[in-house]
Simulated scan of single mutants.
Amino acid sequence: MEYKEFGRTGHRSSRVVFGAAAFSEVTQQEADRTLGLLLDHGINHIDTARSYGDSELHVGPWMKSRRSSFFLASKTGMRTKAEALEELKQTLHRLKTDYLDLWQLHFLVDPEEWEVAMGEGGALEAAIEAKEQGLVRFLGVTGHGVDAPKAHLKSLEVYDFDAVLFPYNFTMLQNPAYKEDVSKLLSVCKQRNIAVQTIKALARGEYKPNEKTFATWYDALSDEAAIEKAVHYVLSNQQLFLNSAGDITLLPAVLKAADKPIVQPTEAEMLSLVKQEGMRPLFT
């Protein structure tokens, strides 16, 4: 497993971040088996959210004895200060910890929601207050969809967030406008030493009717060789961290791929993979 400084936080993070959305509908026993897998592969960074079902509840028991082993991140989808602070209180209780390493304003893309969150009495004020009180160490912003990088650039004009998170995979980057927005965001993050997290590395596209296979809300790659190419496509960009997919059954293949020497797939290889797997952009 490769490790890299997570922006300006001082945390030397595993390049793969465990995406604990995979714990939204599992048992504690399944979660605890996953802990063993994470430790075996040297994963030292967990990303969850208050909105991920029972995820925080499953991670919480680990923190009793292993809090110092993980950089722990969660998120709030609330847009007002009062609501966000209440959700943070719940998150800390569920995770059985006194503080988060990273607290993120979740899915902050919609223009109207952005105005509320960034305005007077908004979630950003909650985040700043929580940081001042020592409840969180660093702050971030996340987003889905083709407008996420552009929204993050706007957010970074208002506040100097420590981390961003957005979708990054080969099919999405075939969209010229999206690719340009991603390039601009990566440039700003490099200049300001902001950590860059990516999601949806394994996305094949939306599910076809009655064909849901994984716990993920989207269809995902399952072939081990295909997963390796998708993982290496992301990790070959040394600026990026890869948040694992929201299904624990996909995690072993992701970790196995990340443990190998990272080899950047060629354009021809990725185009062949798209054709072979019937991959489609998840967001348009």
Rank of each mutant, 00 (worst) to 15 (best):
D259P: 00
V263T: 13
P261D: 07
R280P: 01
A257S: 11
L273P: 01
M279R: 13
K260H: 08
A258T: 06
L271M: 14
M270A: 04
K260P: 02
P265E: 08
K275M: 11
K275D: 14
E277R: 02
F283Q: 03
M270C: 04
E267P: 00
G278L: 09
T266Q: 11
M279V: 11
L271E: 15
V254W: 00
V254R: 00
Q264I: 07
D259G: 15
I262C: 12
E267D: 12
M279A: 14
Q276G: 05
F283D: 03
Q264Y: 06
S272D: 14
V263F: 08
P281M: 05
V263L: 13
A258D: 07
Q264G: 10
L271P: 00
E277K: 05
G278Q: 09
Q276R: 15
D259I: 00
A268E: 15
M270T: 02
E269Y: 05
M279T: 12
L271K: 15
P261Q: 08
P281F: 02
K256Y: 06
V263E: 13
P261T: 06
Q276D: 14
R280N: 11
V274S: 04
P281H: 04
E269N: 06
V254F: 01
F283K: 02
I262V: 15
L282N: 12
V274D: 06
T266V: 10
S272G: 07
K256W: 05
K256R: 14
V263P: 06
E267I: 12
P281C: 04
A257N: 02
R280M: 12
T266R: 10
K260A: 12
Q264N: 12
E267W: 01
I262H: 06
A258M: 09
P265V: 07
I262F: 07
P265N: 10
E269Q: 13
P281T: 01
T266W: 07
E277A: 08
A268K: 13
L271G: 04
F283C: 03
T266Y: 10
L255W: 03
K275E: 15
R280Q: 15
I262N: 05
L255Y: 01
L271N: 14
S272E: 14
S272V: 00
K275L: 12
K260Q: 13
E269T: 02
K256V: 02
L255I: 04
M279Y: 00
R280T: 12
V274I: 13
G278V: 09
E267N: 08
A258R: 02
V274G: 05
K275T: 14
E269C: 07
V254K: 00
V254S: 00
P265I: 09
F283T: 04
D259M: 13
M279D: 01
I262Q: 03
A258I: 04
L273C: 05
I262E: 06
V263D: 06
Q264K: 15
V274C: 08
V274T: 11
M270R: 01
E267V: 13
G278Y: 09
L282W: 10
K275H: 12
L271W: 09
A257R: 01
L255A: 03
A268Q: 14
G278W: 07
E267Q: 13
Q264C: 14
V263S: 11
